[in-house]
Write a protein that binds this DNA or RNA. Structure first.
Lengths: 203, 203
DNA sequence: GTATTTATGTGTCGGTCGATACATAAATCA
DNA sequence: TGATTTATGTATCGACCGACACATAAATAC
């Protein structure tokens, strides 16, 4: 049982990838349908037929980003490294992913919809949820560290996760401001220097 | 020799302050002339007569912000505290200024123009310069620490400044995502835990 | 083949954007 | 007072926004 009617003349996933790059570089509010259709090499009716609306296309683009370009960052938390090495690897991966060649600078989830009019509120909220999910994963990794006996109990894991989340978010802006990969890696390294004090119950 | 003609019927500095709050809350691209004129209680011809254009008004709003709401943050670097205490006080002041009552959340300089179309490039560049100026002031404070003998020579001050600049920038996004003052203060505190290692030549 | 279904390209919708033209109102200077 | 200068309110400019109507083209089902 195949689909009837005229088949789509463009590759949907390729078009989505093009859209992701545009949204990533210019943000939700800063991207117009014209820019999208040009980058996707289609006309606006095809865009609306395939993706519904600008906002739905944005959500799909973010999902694609999280599943591809951003996957390696949070993946660092899933392996068998120690808690400390996991967090460190995540920061380094995040730093590297902020300055990928041939890709927009900075993290799409961090910079994709920071400001705009009321019509961008939904997109902002969507990215905010993604960021909170990131912080949640960091906290879960810390909880695992406590369960494994690597970290003492009684730590305020929420605040430790907030600290590292803050560093990750800051690095994206730093990258947009022109920081090179070397600088970002040194920032990641610097952020880890307080680890022992951060994970002791004395702090 | 007084001014001739009909005098201005509104207080220019009050109007500028209103404009600052709108730009601060919604960003450059997300703020329309309509929102500005409504908040300023004037009509658009008066806005253009008094401020020239949206972009010039934005620049004045940023300058006002830097001179008032943001002044206390960098002012922490100018006093007679030790280098460590200066940086720490700056982070704490930045954390507090991110969640001021009756003010938009986060730092205007960090969040005021992150993304948008090509017509926002000038505003973005302007804020980027402001952020680099902040990093430059931090570095100058560190240089003073070296000159005073508080810090060893041979440190890479640029990278230390980049680290603290990253934390400050990240805190604004954290605040926009809903972090409360207590959380931000704990982030600032966490960011200082690596100070000794960060300012030793072993790192 | 013919009918049906779906996607495409052209053109355009109402709305809003930033920015002004214009005539009028309100002040100072002579 | 009259002449001049400046600011105000109304109304609107062309451009662009996101979204879609419509007729046509291209595929499958029968």
């Amino acid at each position: 049982m195949n689909a009837r009617g005229r088949p789509r003349s463009f590759d949907r996933s390729v078009a989505l990838e093009r859209a992701m790059d545009v949204f990533w570089a210019r943000g939700y509010a800063g991207t117009s349908i014209s820019e999208l259709t040009e980058a996707m090499s289609i006309n606006s009716p095809s865009l609306y037929a395939a993706f519904g609306s600008k906002e739905e296309l944005f959500r799909e683009a973010v999902a694609l980003y999280v599943a591809t370009d951003d996957a390696c960052t949070l993946q660092m938390l899933e392996g068998e490294l120690t808690t400390r090495d996991s967090i460190s690897a995540m920061l380094f991966a995040s730093a590297r992913s902020c300055v990928r060649p041939d890709k927009p600078v900075g993290c799409f989830v961090v910079l994709g919809a920071t400001n705009g009019g009321p019509e961008t509120d939904a997109a902002q909220q969507f990215l905010c949820d993604q960021r909170k999910d990131m912080a949640r994963r960091i906290r879960h990794r810390l909880e695992r560290g406590v369960a494994d006996g690597e970290l003492p109990s009684g730590l305020n894991l929420e605040r430790i996760a907030a600290y590292f989340g803050t560093v990750i978010k800051g690095m994206s802006i730093e990258a947009r401001d022109g920081a090179n990969g070397e600088t970002l890696l040194s920032v990641a390294k610097s952020a880890m220097l307080g680890w022992d004090a951060l994970t002791s119950t004395q702090g």
